[in-house]
Amino acid sequence: MKHLLSINDIDKEFALTILDTAAEMARVSEGPVKKLPTLRGKTVVNLFAEDSTRTRISFEAAAKRLSADVINFTAKGSSISKGESLKDTAQTLQALGADAVIIRHPASGAAHRLAQGKWMNGTVINAGDGTHEHPSQALLDAYTIRKHLRGGKGDLTGLHIAIVGDILHSRVARSNVLLLNKLGASVTLVAPPTLLPHQVEAWPVKVSYNFNAVLPTVDAVIMLRIQQERMSDLYFPSQREYSTLFGIDAERLAMTKQGSILMHPGPMNRGLEISAEAADSPQSVVVEQVANGVSIRMAILYLFIAGSQESVNA
């Protein structure tokens, strides 16, 4: 297993290995010395062709805690903003001796294009490609759910998770649907029909347009960020109406089961898809998701880079 491009690249067993490894990494992070020598001498490039704060610093923190040399390559002020092609960027990274490239890119499939092996041959970790996938986010979400609802052990069989909002444009939703299913949870997508992908019935999910009807049965609610520009693209009539029908507030939160958790991959639009009261409630694990993100990304880097010496050198 050389690249992490999609949740489809890992099977259930390996997904659980990543979660277990992340738990060990979390213990390291809680210790007095937050650093492991595992990736000493390895060069990890953060190639962020799209603005991102939390994912980039999360991967950067993860790589540094594993003692890797980290090079940040971001869109603004780099050759990418000067129109350099992905191919030339990849060949540059290859020439710099990158052992792994963590790529965030606005184009769906950009990570696949890097991983085809013609331009560079390091490990490619997809940190979000267009509206396709964001595997590390799904893994940290699964980690968070498992920690709260399954005592940090085993799979997620029997749990019911709602993913709410702009499914159509969400890479987080695509990766989450695949991973949560792999781990045995059932998933309900809640969104207006305009924000659901065409032929969503082919996905292993239930679909509901009625948030209130879904709330009492779910163990976790994952709220998705709604982009401001979706309104001008005619996906829904107004922010007010969207909030009323598909936003979460204290009232809706009260409809969920005891012990259920509220999640959001961030950045949140407080007052749009999530009210401040909901975001800051005891059920909200949004801040913890960020902390878990570092552990998950340490696990991913450890398992994909340190764990596959020969393929990296091939």
Binding site: G109, G130, H132, E133, R174, P197, H198, Q199, A202, W203
Partner: peptide, 13 residues
Amino acid sequence: NEGAIASTLGLKG
């Protein structure tokens, strides 16, 4: 083509 594959790949249909 707009369909199940485009939806999975995240490419606009």
